[in-house]
Design a protein around this nucleic acid. Structure first.
Lengths: 349, 349
DNA sequence: TTGAAAGCGCTACCAT
DNA sequence: ATGGTAGCGCTTTCAA
């Protein structure tokens, strides 16, 4: 690594002068400055992490510390997945408005990767962390984040330390199902997770489990019961949903409405039905969950449970900031908040 | 700020022991360690940027430096915009495969924000930078990045220093238009930028200008000319495109095909035509540009110029890495590369 | 205009 | 098991 010392040696001046020249201070003679800059260039001097560390060390330590903007790290499941993408965009905007920086990383499916994000980024660059759909065991998250303020988004696993922001899974799904029931649908299919998810302790607190729970609640409120037969299991992608419909084929006509656990799934379902020549909503009504913007552009426009994503973003950002800036004490319990929603009625149901 | 020194004073041990205890080294007695950890907790000790700086300084400086993963900063225009989102996802995956870290930031419309990204993030945490659709003057980019390897994505403004990765705008658009021509379309409309973009020196090198250029080339290759009358100006969003179609209304039937400068626009156009009761492709064929995945899920499936996004990502990542790791010298000129593509023929044209 | 010295917070090394 | 010392690369302060 090239250091200022190297440049100093090469040019025959002191490190101090190199430092001054490089920062464009006016107490260096133009000729000297020129010479130093050129040497730095030709030696390929780079203000790299180590150099920066040294600078920060010195600058932060003294009283004329920079009016430091807090940095919030954000782990997002898939950048090219509509719902996480919208959340990321909104978090970035909110943070910007709060005058703080955000650094995003994409989590892949393997926990190894999530672990590495926390280790390498969160603990190095960030003052706080927003973790969206984490796969890591809660314990590990708490341990790895080393008392660094952390907010979990849509992760309702039992724990008391971390702030949590949740999409309105139960209540939103229930409302959607009641809407379908009110419109007279009686043969409703549920596309996403299987029926079993609600009894599986591992997945009970997952988004899928919570949404299915809402469906079951609404159904039982109407004196009906959720059965395995009504559940269509599929990957949570539109491709997966589309081919799931293809596989079911004509017998999908047994349903008069399909409630899909996410907008992605719903879009794939509509396309799959279209492939079979089944019209939405005339033959089968389709409803989604999330409120992704593109749903409005679809034909038919997607009727969906629209989560208040800006609110989700601001709750997440404000939660971390409250702790970073000490408004909430280090030892105070995590707060659990559920985001608002509304039924976005368009054409598909 | 709480430092190890504070903890040392409070517990009556040395800073060294605090350091050891905090890092879980085994040369501290369990009781002492316990006491130190508790004190650290109650005092709210945080490994913050300054602390980290100090650690890095010490650790990196010595020879047993960590097998440091390079960190690449990526500035993305809008996380919730399909095309940038897919690029971001792909860059993240590629980087992961190359064993390096990526840090993403969202650029907003104002240059102020871009400036701040480069200043605060790139120059602090990153070994290299990928800038997608930058608005900053090229000079500023070069200056702000202070000899830190930087790759521009889809930014073809004249300059020699920075590596550039470009989507196949001219060639892709030309191919698309030839395809429409071959299918017998003679009244083709172009949706996106106005005709003037190709003559405006400010926008000549923009994605819009370059795509329009390709259209004009294909047209003139067939003995036809691009005229103002064939250009439909719209914001580059599906909402904008949809309402642009609404405004034009029935007279849009004067076209038998519409080539849209992006998939976003194309999707909005299809929806807008649908609103008017115009069928795609029967009444009017519609074609897009980008190759966003969701186009396949649309009805009708979007025919589009599919940019090889994985290649775009790997070219970008490898370009920075080449320079970070010194395979390409600091003073070597920027390389300009154009990404591959293919016509993705689906149903809309 | 220039530079010597001190010190930022931490960890490696070696002595106790 | 514990701690003293040195020093990472830089900037600040102050003296020359």
């Amino acid at each position: 690594m090239i250091t200022m010392k190297d440049i100093a040696n090469a040019t025959g001046v002191s490190v101090v002068t190199v430092s001054n020249a490089l920062r464009g201070k006016d107490n260096v003679s133009p000729e000297t400055a020129q010479r130093i800059l050129e040497t730095a260039d030709s030696m390929g001097y780079r203000v790299n992490a180590a150099n920066l560390a040294a600078r920060n060390l010195r600058v932060r330590g003294t009283r004329n510390a920079l009016p430091e903007k807090p940095v919030i790290g954000v782990a997002i499941f898939e950048f090219d997945n509509m719902q996480p993408a919208q959340l990321a965009a909104e978090i970035s905007r909110t943070a910007s408005a709060r005058r703080c920086q955000t650094l995003f990383q994409q989590t892949l499916t393997d926990a190894e990767n999530e672990h590495s994000i926390i280790d390498n980024i969160a603990n190095q660059f960030c003052d706080g962390l927003i973790l969206s759909s984490a796969n890591l065991p809660v314990k590990d998250i708490i341990r790895f984040t080393k008392r660094r303020p952390t907010v979990l988004v849509d992760d309702d696993r039992p724990q008391e330390q971390l702030d949590t922001v949740l999409s309105p899974c139960e209540i939103g799904s229930a409302e959607a199902v009641r809407y379908l029931l009110d419109k007279g649908h009686r043969r409703i299919g549920f596309v996403g997770d299987g029926f079993g998810v609600m009894d599986d302790p591992m997945r009970l607190h997952s988004v899928g489990g919570r949404r299915m729970r809402g469906c079951a609640d609404a159904l039982s409120g109407a004196g009906m019961a959720l059965t395995t037969g009504q559940c269509i299991d599929t990957e949570w992608t539109w491709e997966g949903a589309r081919s799931a419909i293809h596989q079911i084929g004509e017998s999908i006509r047994g349903y008069d409405a399909l409630f899909c656990l996410t907008d992605n799934i719903a879009l794939g379902v509509i396309r799959g039905l279209g492939d079979l020549g089944i019209r939405v909503p005339d033959d089968i009504a389709v409803m989604g969950f999330d409120g992704c913007a593109i749903g409005e552009c679809f034909m038919p426009g997607l009727t969906t449970v629209a989560v208040d994503i800006p609110q989700m973003a601001s709750l997440a950002v404000d939660s971390v900031l409250d702790r970073i800036e000490g408004r909430i004490g280090v030892n105070e319990h995590g707060r659990r908040r559920i985001v608002g929603h509304h039924l976005e009625i368009r054409e598909s149901a």
